[in-house]
Design a binder for these strands. Structure first.
Lengths: 339, 339
DNA sequence: TTGTACGCGTTATCAT
DNA sequence: ATGATAACGCGTACAA
């Protein structure tokens, strides 16, 4: 026996299905009596409207897709949580998709979301992505796309980003002000826009303070992971002229640097200051606790969702795209000297 | 201009919509020519079938719901990732839902998933949940429910669990064997089934080894969080007769204990051994690195998904429920003495 | 106030 | 091989 439908109710009450529909939807011009009868029976029969039929009728899925590189890091899982929060009072449902940092998978996911007829998409592109045709295609179909966290340069879309450049700049400048002279950078994988921004902040802070830039002090890790950070840190700390500070592209890599330094009996922060990026929760559990750059995760998620909702409610009729950039906040803990 | 439909294609080609449908679905009895014409035009027009219509027709959403307490911990985000992996080759889409450890929200989510006509549900119940009527209701509607990680005692359903009891037992016994005599337990919040199992493993290991159980050595934290662990650890380590080992209900609380011990200049593991539970990635980044009990996260997620898929494919026609229990693995690192 | 008829996009069945 | 028709469940313009 299948689910109960308005037709079932109509038959039992000997009225037309349309009457049932009207009663259930609180429509105008319907007698109190029939209305109550219908509602009572619907309740009793545990009637629930068939969303698939309604969606078909409205040509609307009430679905929003969000694509992230992965969810196993605190950053992205927290962003998704905040998006969920933002959407919880709406009729929209969120479809969470993981690109696994793969451009190919990302394109597949976009196609999947198109097939699902999503009403809108939130996306943080994979680190491999530098072609945005798949996103443009969505836009051309009239599906609004909001890009967050990682910029898609050249793509015209709503964007919610973080000023990593300034965040890095500040972090490095604080190292300089605390007396560090030989500041190294554990940079991210090549090509990533995050990598570039944070590297640029590092470079410009040195330049502004007239500190020579030493090639050997800039070391790119192959991945954004702890293990990748271990190898890179070893190279860095075994240099003849080893650095007295390390600014790392993210917390896990900074923590790797802490571990390597400890093993080499380098005192932190006396001999070596270390600053990370992200403020992952466990960074404050470390000994020494990690100085880092905090990103306003919840604000990013909520604003992205809010912008998308504006589009879907037709509030944002202009074709102007929003370009929001959040500031970061430097958090000094035990791994770097206090000014 | 809306999306292109088979009717559009049919009109342009002056054939019937059903013919277009057959051509597109590689149906029997259709001439090569019309088939090719249709496919060519569909390609050109960028036709994509309307899933909502198909779903309505098939009375099937192709949607699977998964409910977890939260996704910001590595454990649950990794489980969801493994479920996604398992589902990626199927026609099913995953709807991720967060109960926020709230029974009330969990019930609401179940209702939402019912309205979405999900084909099946995977759930790890909230810590507040001890009534399972909402799950029974789903089952009564013919929607298969697979419970994972946290047991729902009394509920008849497929279950994929972890033998936390044995995991704890082993961990505590290893502490005993390494020479610890005063073993404390930082237990989880009351009422949680996880808390109970791990506590029981602790108690039985002591009993078996004829070590007296001291009430003061068992301290319940109010939440599964680091901060909650800090307070509890302070109480424990400030006892007149302070313990020489701590078995914590999870890694974050164990890490809190490490921090407190360090601040009190207690040597780890010489004066105090510490063992956690979960093997969160950052646990190995700590100094000392944390000994812990590993749960086979990916196996849990994949098996749960696989069992659900069996139901949905109608393979599992028997009404028998599966009850799978994974074993844990003790990982000794620097925070506890090696036997 | 209520019923009839149609359409949303697709597929399956029956007829041609 | 192809077309016409019905059906999935619902909402609504129109007629009564």
């Amino acid at each position: 026996m299948g689910r109960i439908t308005i037709t079932d109710i109509a038959k039992k009450l000997k009225v037309a299905p349309s009457t049932v529909s009207r009663a259930l939807n609180n429509h105008a011009s319907i007698s109190e009596k029939t209305k109550n009868d219908v509602i009572a029976l619907a309740e009793k029969l545990n009637y629930e409207p068939n969303i698939m039929a309604i969606n078909l009728l409205h040509r609307k899925s009430n679905l929003i897709g969000v694509i992230v590189p992965h969810i196993t890091s605190h950053f992205y899982s927290a962003i998704i949580t905040s998006i969920q929060d933002m959407l919880s009072n709406t009729t929209f449902n969120l479809m969470v998709c993981i690109s696994n940092e793969s451009f190919e998978e990302e394109v597949l996911l976009i196609q999947k979301l198109e097939k699902l007829h999503v009403d809108g998409v939130l996306i943080c592109t994979s680190s491999e992505t530098n072609n945005f045709d798949h996103l443009k295609k969505m836009q051309n179909k009239g599906i609004p796309v909001v890009v967050f966290d990682r910029d898609c340069s050249g793509l015209k879309a709503d964007k919610v980003l973080v000023d990593c450049y300034s965040g890095s700049f500040e972090a490095v400048e604080s190292l300089i002000q605390s007396g560090c002279k030989k500041i190294a950078h554990l940079a991210g994988p090549q090509n990533s826009s995050t990598t570039k921004q944070r590297l640029n902040g590092y470079l410009d802070a040195l330049k502004k303070n007239k500190i020579p830039i030493i090639k050997e002090y800039i070391h790119h890790v192959s991945e954004f992971t702890f293990n990748s950070g271990i190898k890179a840190s070893e190279v860095l700390l075994k240099l003849k002229n080893s650095p007295d500070a390390i600014f790392a592209v993210n917390d896990n890599i900074a923590i790797a640097a802490i571990n390597v330094a400890k093993k080499m009996s380098i005192k932190i922060p006396e001999e070596l200051s270390i600053v990370g990026f992200n403020d992952d929760p466990h960074s404050s559990f470390m000994t020494p606790s990690l100085s880092t750059v905090l990103q306003p995760i919840f604000s990013i998620g909520m604003l992205s969702a809010r912008i998308l909702l504006h589009h879907l409610k037709g509030v944002n009729t202009k074709i102007e795209f929003r370009h929001e950039v959040f500031k970061t906040e430097l958090i000094i803990r035990e791994s770097s000297k206090f000014l």
